[in-house]
C-alpha cells in the first residue's frame, strides 16, 4: 500500500511540475504548482513528517499560491502565444538535466554513514511489533520533537527568522508603496466626508 501511494503521489507531483513549466496560461501553471505542492505534502506524511505536511499545505499551498494568483490577477498577465522553443536553450537545458541526474545516480548507490534500513527503525510507530522494545513516548510525536529542538538547540536561528520575517514585511511595504499622487481638492473633500466610502477602501483601490 505504501508503495502504491508513493508512486501515485510522486507521479502526480512530477506531472504537475512538468505542466507548470509547459503550460501557456500562468493561472493554469499556478494551479498545477499548487497540486504538486499538495502531493509533496502527501509524501511528507508518508515520511512521518505530519507537522511539516500541515505547514506545507497551510503556508506554501495556501499562502504562497494565493499570493501568486493575486499577482497574476493584478498584473493581468496574458497567456504566452507559444512557449519559446529555442533549440540551443532546450538542448543546453536537457544536457544539464541529464548531467545532474547522472551525478545524482552516482551518489544514490553509496550508502551514507549512519544509514539504517527502514525496518530497523524501532522508534517508529509504524514498525512497532510485539517483540520490539517500546520506544520512549517523546519519540513518537514529531511536532513535539520539532518544538523541543526548535526552542532549545535552534533558538537563535528561530529568533533570527522572526527578524527576517519582520524585515520582509517592512521591505514589501516599502517596495510596493507608490509615490503619493497629487490629490485634487474634490477628492480631498470626498475623502473627508463621512458619507463617502470608508477610508480604508479608497486607499486600497488607489
Amino acid at each position: 500500500m505504501d508503495t502504491l501511494f508513493f508512486w501515485f503521489f510522486s507521479l502526480v507531483m512530477i506531472v504537475c511540475g512538468l505542466s507548470v513549466i509547459l503550460n501557456r496560461n500562468p493561472v493554469a501553471s499556478a494551479l498545477c504548482f499548487a497540486f504538486s505542492l499538495v502531493s509533496m505534502a502527501a509524501l511528507f506524511i508518508m515520511l512521518d513528517a505530519y507537522f511539516l505536511a500541515a505547514v506545507q499545505i497551510l503556508v506554501t499551498a495556501g499562502g504562497v499560491m494565493v499570493l501568486f494568483l493575486f499577482i497574476i490577477m493584478l498584473l493581468n498577465v496574458e497567456a504566452a502565444e507559444s512557449i519559446p522553443r529555442q533549440k540551443i536553450w532546450m538542448g543546453l537545458t536537457l544536457g544539464l538535466a541529464l548531467i545532474f541526474i547522472y551525478l545524482v545516480s552516482l551518489t544514490l548507490n553509496a550508502t551514507p554513514r549512519g544509514f539504517v534500513p527502514q525496518n530497523a527503525l524501532a522508534g517508529e510507530s509504524r514498525s512497532l511489533e510485539p517483540g520490539a522494545p517500546t520506544p520512549p513516548a517523546d519519540l513518537l510525536d514529531d511536532t513535539q520533537r520539532i518544538g523541543n529542538r526548535l526552542f532549545t538547540h535552534f533558538v537563535a536561528p528561530f529568533e533570527i527568522t522572526s527578524l527576517l520575517l519582520l524585515v520582509a514585511t517592512i521591505g514589501v511595504v516599502v517596495i510596493c508603496k507608490q509615490d503619493e499622487p497629487r490629490r485634487s481638492p474634490h477628492e480631498e473633500i470626498s475623502r473627508e466626508a463621512p458619507s463617502a466610502r470608508p477610508e480604508k477602501e479608497t486607499t486600497l483601490t488607489r
Binding site: 512521518d48 527503525l121 524501532a122 522508534g123 520506544p135 519519540l139 514529531d142 529542538r149 526548535l150 535552534f154
Partner: peptide
C-alpha cells in the same frame, strides 16, 4: 533508546 530518526532535517 535503540534507533530513532533524526529530527534536525525537519527543523
Amino acid at each position: 533508546r535503540p534507533y530513532f530518526n533524526h529530527i534536525d532535517g525537519q527543523v
